[in-house]
Structure formats: C-alpha cells, structure tokens
C-alpha cells in the first residue's frame, strides 16, 4: 500500500470540482462572449473589406430612361477610352427590373415602364475613372447619365464598420475586466480557504513564487478548460445562427456563418489561451501581493 502512495504525488492544491464549478461557469460565459464578439468583429471587418473591394473595382453608370437609342453603346465606347476601365457590360433590362423589386414587389411590370439602362464598369485594381471627364464626354455626346461615386459608398461602409469595431473593443475590455475581477475574487477566496496550506508552505521555506505558481496554475487550468468550452460553444452557436440566416436568405453581416476562415480558427484557439494567461496573471499578482503583505514579514 505504501508503494502506491509513494509513487503517486498528490496535488498540493486541492482540486474540488464542486467548489470550482461557479468560477468555471463564469469563465465559460466570459469566453463565450469574448469569442462571439471577436468572431462578429472579424466577420464584419471581412464583409466591409469585401464590399470596399467591390466598390473600388467597379462603377455603375445609369443611362436615364427614354434616352436616345444607342446611348448605352455610345456610353460604353466613351468609358472604354479611359485607361482605368477594363470592361463595360450593358446589363439587360431584367436586371433593372430586379432592382425595383424591393419597392414595387414581384408583380409583372408594365412593358412601357421607363427603366434606366445600367452599365457595369470594371476598373483596374487601385485605379479610378475621372468622373468629371466622363460626365463632360457624356454631355458632349448628348447622353443623360449618372455615374455612381464609389467613394461615397466606401465612406458609408467605413462608418458602421468603425462603430462595430469600437463596440467590439469596448465589449472585450469589459469582458477582460470581468475576467480579472473574477480571478482576483476567486484567488482571495482560495487564499482564505487554503490559509493553512499557505502558512505551512511558508513554514517549510517555500518562496512566495512557489505558492503563487501553485494557485495561479490551478486557476489558469480552470480558465483554459472553461475558455475552451466557451469558445467552442460560441463557434457552434455563431455557425448555427449563420446557417439559419443563410437558409432563410437573410443577411448574416456580423456572423461568420459556415464559412470559417483561418482567422476564425485562430481566434477560437487564442481566446482560451489568452483567458488562461489573464487569469494566471491576475491570480499571481493577487497572491504575491497578499503573501508579502500578510505572510512574509
């Protein structure tokens, strides 16, 4: 019997699952929220970047209804003269009708309804057309057309993206603060509960760092496990919500959906690790401070 005792080392810090459960749940929730925030933020950034790229690489020209015949072809020729333009496609009338659906519904439109003709203008990467020059050319050719300014839309996208980022950062700061507070509170409770262990370790000559390592490692492990569970759940939940949006043809702007990127995977892995590091650091600081204030003269 003695042999089995002497070969297996008992953990110095008692691991009582029942006692750790409330803290574990708090860390699961914090990790869940942090992961969800990061995934949403990353998804929003990705969507904004994609839209920005789309806007920067194309321009839509709208030939006004009832313009002279051949106006679209003439406008295409004018546009192709610009060195920034790679291709111009005259969109069929059906496309114009599709754009009106949100306002007029799916009912058949009268054949004589005046509709604009849309030109999809593709640009070289990083280049832009000179709106004034093209407008002057259209005017000279007696074409009544509007040229969309992509910069205007880019600004419109940037504003909510920045707001979403600020919200994400605020949420993360609050989550980290809550995490540190929970870790400090739990460490103080553990110091009270394990006072005899601390006193005995002090008696037998354990340096404060030894005792602090014992406590912080325990909390870090709890944080890592809880963080893993929280991050995994957040990934699953965001995936399910994304799938629901996709199946209902809705918009999943802030959700990663089922299309996980490598960044999402890194985030899900990083959250529990960062959580464990934050908890370990907060716990370490708390116990070192207490040891020097109360135990070590």
């Amino acid at each position: 019997m003695t042999d089995s005792i002497t070969t297996q080392e008992q953990p110095l810090f008692p691991r009582r699952k029942k006692d750790d459960r409330p803290l574990f749940i708090v860390f699961v929730i914090l990790s869940f929220l942090a992961t969800l925030t990061l995934l949403a933020s990353a998804s929003a950034n990705r969507a904004a970047a994609d839209w920005h790229t789309d806007l920067a690489s194309s321009v839509t020209v709208q030939i006004k209804p009832n313009d002279k015949p051949g106006a679209a072809a003439l406008a295409r020729d004018i546009l192709l003269q610009s060195s920034a333009v790679t291709a111009v496609t005259i969109l069929p009338v059906e496309r114009s009708k599709e754009l009106l659906k949100p306002w007029l519904g799916g009912a058949a439109l009268p054949k004589d309804l005046p509709l604009p003709i849309l030109l999809d203008v593709r640009l070289h990467a990083g280049q832009a057309i000179d709106n004034q020059q093209i407008s002057a050319a259209f005017l000279a050719a007696n074409i009544r057309a509007d040229i969309d300014d992509p910069q205007k839309w880019a600004k419109e996208i940037k504003r909510p993206t920045n707001a979403a980022q600020a919200l994400s950062v605020t949420a993360l700061v609050l989550i980290i603060t809550a995490c540190i507070t929970a870790a400090v509170f739990a460490t103080r409770a553990a110091i009270t509960g394990q006072r005899r262990l601390i006193d005995v370790l002090h008696q037998v000559g354990a340096p404060p760092s030894y005792t602090a390592r014992l406590f912080s490692a325990n909390f870090a492990l709890t944080g890592l496990k809880a963080g893993g569970l929280g991050a995994g759940t957040a990934l699953l939940v965001s995936g399910l919500i994304g799938m629901m949006f996709a199946s209902s043809s809705g918009v999943s702007f802030f959700l990663p959906g089922l299309h996980l990127t490598l960044t999402d995977i890194y985030l899900v892995i990083a959250v529990p690790i960062l959580l464990a590091i934050i908890i370990a650091f907060a716990s370490w600081r708390t116990i070192i401070k207490t040891l020097y204030e109360e135990i070590y003269p």
Partner: peptide, 8 residues
C-alpha cells in the same frame, strides 16, 4: 525578505 525562504 526574498532570502528568507532559503533560511527557513
């Protein structure tokens, strides 16, 4: 005080 554990 950092040297105390070694003495203890």
């Amino acid at each position: 005080r950092k040297a105390i554990p070694a003495l203890k």
